[in-house]
Write a protein that binds this DNA or RNA. Structure first.
Length: 438
RNA sequence: CGGAGUGUAGCUCAGCCUGGUAGAGCACUGUCUUCGGGAGGCAGGGGCCGCAGGUUCAAAUCCUGCCACUCCGACCA
């Protein structure tokens, strides 16, 4: 992509409403634009990141055996009356009427709808287990939206729902998602710690929140510092195996959000120098809730003995749009965003310091074509801006690599390769630079 | 929903107290100089001063109502 043709409205000054780093940087980097309180448009650069995160989530869901479908944003109120949540949900739910004055709502979550789909289609225990997900926009009319997309009213969420015949099966489904979440966040370059959590209005009695530690997080969290050193998971976890040992390991040490925090236990179980008490960003939340919805909504299957059994369910959410902000909170510096490579909007920023100079133009065109041909995503700054402004923009939008092509090096066929995270710079020939980037 | 604020150019803000021709910096357009870490000169364009009512000869400025947005709290992926 040529920067001269790219819609990238970067801001030199910080908009007044932004309080935290991720919100400031997303506005300044031209990733989002507020439409209304807690409701944002995603501009091209922001959408690229959102899509990358979405794709990683999708791949890991598929790998763990979940199947993607897509449910609507608008749901009929009647389904929610069946589960009893139409009245329970309160003003957070956006209620609307269609032209026939039928009560509808913009979905804040999808348990009712998925249960409805399931009960109409599945009759036998032989069809279990099932795990279905979608990645869809949700709306929750928060009392106080804030922090940009971190607590928006409209947000993109991956939510999935597991259906099992019995507790043992449900437990395995829960464990699969537990492991899939560890892997998902790890792939994005994030350290997310599973913590014991309240299950809230969704109900149920087994629940973990996946938390990124960050001072600007919204909830207070307490955990054992050793979690930060836990090594990566196996490349390809075998989801058919018993996953309990992995889950046990990741729940072996103290970790709790404030609502489940027990100060006495914390002090008893965690040595003083290993105690972390900080704030965190919830990026995922998993629940087991048994027959809470299947019972009232009549989602049953015929068991092996011929009797009707309500299915055991769980639900699992990842805040896809929140992860964009969460990643920035976890990875930025004074100059701007520092994207982990897997979610970076482009891998390389190619900076032509002197468009119009034959040597610079030639080298840039060559690199741009070769990198593009190799499938490397490149943002090519071919604008007439001054060098300082170009560097500032590149640092702000935080691409992992910058290739700087200026007349000084160009006449010897050399370019400068800069790593955004480390700040290391190397002067290299073209082939060497290509080798490092492909 | 309680409390506190803010709405003036694309962005950051001044002007409001004490009513009298709409301002600055950045951004934008043209041009010249400069050109390896957010350059400088000259010349320009851009405003329903949140909306509606009221007071007044006269309202961005004073009064009333409404709307929007932000912050603190209670609530939450």
């Amino acid at each position: 992509m040529r920067l001269s043709q790219y819609f990238l409205p970067v801001l030199k000054q910080t908009p007044a409403e932004a309080q935290i780093a991720s919100h400031r940087l997303m506005l300044r980097a031209g990733m989002i634009r507020q439409a209304s309180a807690g409701i944002y448009s995603w501009l091209p650069l922001g959408l690229r990141v959102l899509s990358k995160i979405e794709q990683i989530v999708r791949e890991e869901q598929n790998r763990a055996g979940a199947q993607e479908l897509l449910m609507p944003t608008i749901q009929p109120a009647d389904l929610w009356r069946e589960s009893g949540r139409y009245d329970d949900y309160g003003k957070e739910m956006l209620r609307i009427q269609d032209r026939h004055e039928r009560d509808m709502l913009y979905g804040p979550t999808n348990e009712e709808l998925i249960t409805d789909i399931f009960r109409h289609s599945v009759r036998s225990y032989r069809d279990l287990p099932r795990n279905l997900y979608h990645i869809q926009w949700k709306f929750r009319d928060e009392v106080r939206p804030r922090f940009g997309i971190m607590r928006g009213r409209e947000f993109l969420m991956k939510d999935n729902y597991s259906f099992d015949l019995d507790y043992a099966g449900a437990r395995h489904s829960y464990n699969k998602m537990f492991v899939a979440y560890l892997r998902t966040f790890e792939r994005m370059g994030l350290k997310a710690i599973p913590m014991a959590a309240d299950s809230g209005p969704i109900g149920g009695d087994m629940s973990h929140e996946f938390i990124i530690l960050a001072e600007t997080g919204e909830s207070e969290v307490y955990c054992h510092a050793d979690y930060l050193g836990f090594e990566a998971l196996a490349e390809d976890p075998d989801y058919d195996n018993d996953l309990q040992p992995v889950v046990d390991r990741w729940t072996s040490l103290y970790a709790a959000t404030d609502e489940k925090h027990d100060p006495a236990r914390f002090e008893a179980e965690v040595p003083a120098d290993r105690r972390i008490a900080t704030r965190g960003i919830e990026v995922g939340h998993i629940f087991y809730f048994g027959t809470k919805y299947s019972q009232p909504m009549g989602a049953t299957v015929t068991g092996a003995d011929g009797g009707e059994v309500p299915v055991e369910m769980g639900s699992y959410g990842i805040g896809v749009s929140r992860l964009v902000g969460g990643t920035i909170e976890a990875s930025h510096d004074d100059a701007g965003i520092v994207w982990p490579e897997p979610v970076a909007p482009f891998k390389v920023g190619l900076v032509n310091l002197k468009p119009g100079d034959a040597a610079c133009d030639g080298i840039c065109a060559d690199l741009y074509a070769k990198l593009g041909g190799a499938g490397v995503e490149v943002l090519y700054d071919d604008t007439e801006e001054r060098a300082g402004a170009k560097f500032a923009t590149m640092d702000l939008i935080g691409l992992p690599w910058q290739v700087i092509v200026g007349p000084r090096g160009a006449k010897d066929g050399k370019v400068e390769l800069k790593n955004r995270r480390s700040g290391d710079r190397d002067e290299l020939g073209l082939d060497a630079a290509l080798q490092r980037l492909i």
